[in-house]
Amino acid sequence: MSGISPRDLERLSAYLDGALQARDRDQLQRRLRAEAALASALKDLEGMRALVRRVPQRRPPRSFTLTQAMVGAEPKRSFAGWNSLNLVSAVATLMLVIVLAGDFWAGGLQPLDAGAPAAEEAPQAFLAQEGDTSASQTPTSGVGVESAEETEELERHAPPEETGPPAEESAPFGLRTFMLGNARPLEIGLGLVAFLSGVLAWRARQRRRINSR
């Protein structure tokens, strides 16, 4: 087959498998009748193919059926579960952020507006207290004072800037109240859902990664 061009070799190979177009096949058949070398190459190729086709199929040494242990969790369900857990976690986290931001925004603005007059009033109240120690109550704290000693005690412990609204209503607020355990049930619920679904999604992902090794 040494005198046969690669193109002819390809044609002969395809001809052998019946994979030539009708026109190419007719053309090759004409050449095969005229060219002995080409006909001999075809015969060689045919013999070689017959030889290879005689190669016996080897019996598999064992069964390749799968067990649950081999494949781990069912692929489709674990994939869907992992996705939905991720989605739940993301949605819950987003809602929690929105709620906390809302709290922070509302809690952060209110004291600024309400606190300004209170801060202006504070020196006057202080002066009033200095002038009249028998005043029955401070204007801003709203706490009743019975004596001058008690007023002095109160002033020592309460700096002027804290003479506005009570501590629960000042900024920064949502996060601090949440941290102090005063969060609303919605915030706690969202936090728990975000945390638990996040942990479960992470665990599902880890298990999936181990199974796919």
């Binding site: 690669p6 070799l9 190979s13 395809a14 001999s40 013999g47 193919r49």
Partner: peptide, 30 residues
């Protein structure tokens, strides 16, 4: 198609090297 043709050609050349090992009825025409 072209890979198969070249593979057959090379396999044939290689098998000719085993001619004496192969039983008579498996020897290639050439």
């Amino acid at each position: 198609k072209s890979r198969l043709a070249r593979a057959r050609s090379r396999l044939q050349t290689c098998l000719q090297g085993f001619a004496e090992l192969l039983p008579d009825r498996f020897r290639l025409n050439s």
